[in-house]
């Protein structure tokens, strides 16, 4: 099978500092590939190079056939002085109202169409960004920390939604995350990045590999999150019992 994307020996140096060191990988259609790594590992730089937003110092990104790329940025900051509704935000990518409503439907927030973007919760904002990426009918979805600012239950729901989108549309997905365990069920392949590729493979293989443990430590690997309350779709806590986190 022909890959969607071929990354060949990408290197990036900024001001003499090595950000990326000979990063090579391939991404295939219908595949979900997750980049994990600590802060400053170069994940976002790599994504920006793939998107054409940043130029690599050396190495190439090749797309064997022309691709439509849908991009979901890490966060969205809209100035409160800008009176923009969710519908208006989506219209920037596609003026067709019906298609915008359908995209919102797919990410299960069609009721937010007329709401101002600046008042959305973290989870709602991420879904709006995802809807905008979907409007482009992408062959490749690039998601930079798609669950940022979303509570843990919301994160699971969002990862399920991403898997569902892949299953329905057959697009390839490149995703950035800093937590392997949350993303484990939602990904086919994992690349563990720390300037260079430390290890890669299935999530199970990566989490068992010494390179991964060395990078994240045992504590992270054993971390679990206990819930004592339920969340609705929008992330509000519905039933608060005793609150003990961590």
């Amino acid at each position: 099978m022909q890959p969607l994307l071929n990354s060949n020996d990408i290197c990036l140096q900024i001001a003499g500092k090595t950000i990326l060191d000979h990063v090579s990988f391939q991404l295939f259609p219908r595949q979900i590939l997750t980049l994990i790594g600590p802060n400053g590992a170069g994940k976002t730089s790599l994504v920006r190079i793939i998107l054409g937003l940043l130029k690599a110092s050396s190495g190439t990104v090749a797309f064997p056939r022309p691709l439509r790329i849908g991009y979901m940025p890490q966060k969205l900051h809209i100035d409160a002085t800008l009176p923009l509704t969710v519908g208006g935000f989506l219209a920037l990518a596609d003026r067709h109202r019906k298609r915008c409503r359908d995209a919102l439907e797919r990410v299960a927030i069609s009721h937010l169409y007329d709401q101002p973007v600046s008042g959305l919760s973290g989870g709602e904002t991420q879904r709006v960004l995802l809807a905008r990426a979907l409007l482009r009918k992408p062959d490749l979805l690039v998601l930079d920390e798609p669950v940022q600012g979303v509570d843990v239950n919301g994160q699971e729901a969002l990862y399920q939604l991403i898997t569902q989108i892949r299953n329905e549309s057959g697009c390839g997905i490149l995703m950035v995350s800093h937590d392997l365990h949350l993303v484990m069920a939602a990904t086919d392949q994992v690349i563990c990045l720390n300037q260079h590729i430390c290890c890669h493979g299935t999530p199970e293989a990566v989490s068992a590999s010494p390179a991964y443990t060395e990078l994240f430590g045992v504590r992270t690997a054993l971390y679990t999150h206990h819930h004592d309350h339920q969340h609705s779709l929008h992330g509000e806590v519905e039933d608060c019992g005793d609150h003990h986190h961590g």
Binding site: R48, L51, G52, L53, I69, Y71, P73, L76, I78, L82, L84, F89, L92, A93, R95, R132, R136, V142
Partner: peptide
């Protein structure tokens, strides 16, 4: 109008689009 608004909302997203 649309590209101006688009880069105001999110520059990278506009460029990818």
């Amino acid at each position: 109008w649309t590209p101006l608004l688009s880069i105001t909302v999110h520059e990278d997203l506009a460029q990818v689009e």
